[in-house]
Design a protein around this nucleic acid. Structure first.
Lengths: 172, 172
DNA sequence: CCAATCCGATTGCATTTTGCAATCAGTTGC
DNA sequence: GCAACTGATTGCAAAATGCAATCGGATTGG
């Protein structure tokens, strides 16, 4: 369950952490989708992860120090998963992956608009997003001024614009 | 063998391309190690890839458009594998992966010096490196002035410095 | 109070993928 | 001719994956 250490190469070690088909998907849904609960990750997953795999990966990501788990005070059974700093700093990797995929792979427009925004925003936007995630998941004080839309809100708004525009052009 | 298309999300599609334990390792050895032949990839692989897996992944990467294969004029059996533009543009992803792994994972110094250099050089260095790769693999005219050390030479020199320094401090 | 539903998982099982060792046939150098 | 090397392929065991069913506890609605 833990790491292999085939070699001390940083790219290899990174691959051993999330070089599988699900780990990054889960982290993506937590980072960009704001998902915190098992059922949210299970039921709203676009790719349809199985519950045993989800349980296994959540456990593995906790062992690796990418996630922590806490009780949800509002519901005795619910567990809240939080990103650690280690996971939050994946944002630049996610941004690059999205940018690359958008160029070379058959992405759908509504699902790639967020990657486009993140790419256009560049490192400053990534930093702002990571700051928000630290606030959300680690309770850190937010450095972004109040009354500015959060990055996640911006991404969500852009996504909904595309969906709305597509629905309109379909009925027109 | 080809792609799943679980969803049209760019991050998901990227994962379906190289979300396994070997594809990116092979591309890393081609990009940073300058490996072009089957045996080079097989025998000098730090992580010890098996020949059937290597054959399978090379085939898959060709089907995906990341590699091309050509006869080696010097040896009737030898095949030369070349990176396509699609693979060359992975350099920024590799750089980010290396930078992240260097911070969070138990990398060895000599294997992470290249990642450090690539991180410090930033996008301009990545661009120069990609230009060199286009020259090497696609026959494109090189934009970098002659008599400047190539990025790969710089990376290699930095690696050898670390190895030499370590050997010296071990005997001292 | 009780049934239905929701919670984070776990179990069993069939299928697929992986990793390893051995082997292959053609090419080359001597 | 023959050993070494070329890019692979094959057989087989082990592990990972995907799917459906299920679990015991908690909560909700009536």
């Amino acid at each position: 369950m833990s790491i292999d250490r085939r070699s001390g190469c940083p790219i290899n070690l990174s691959l051993e952490v999330f070089g599988d088909r699900w780990s990054l998907i889960i982290l993506r849904d937590m980072i960009f989708g704001g998902k915190r609960h098992f059922r949210e990750l299970l039921n709203f997953s676009l790719e349809g992860i199985a519950s045993n795999i989800l349980a296994d990966r959540l456990k593995r990501l906790m062992e690796l120090g990418m996630l922590t788990k806490a009780d949800d005070p509002s519901h005795k059974q619910k567990a809240i998963y939080s990103l650690t700093e280690m996971a939050i700093t994946l944002v630049p990797i996610m941004a690059q992956l999205g940018a690359w995929g958008r160029v070379w792979l058959p992405v759908t427009e509504e699902l790639s608009i967020r990657a486009e925004l993140l790419e256009k925003g560049g490192p400053p936007l990534w930093e702002q997003f990571m700051d928000e995630l630290r606030h959300e998941h680690l309770g850190a004080p937010s450095k972004t001024p109040p009354n500015t839309p959060t990055v996640r809100q911006q991404l969500r708004a852009a996504y909904e614009d595309v969906v709305a525009r597509k629905a309109e052009s379909a009925t027109a």
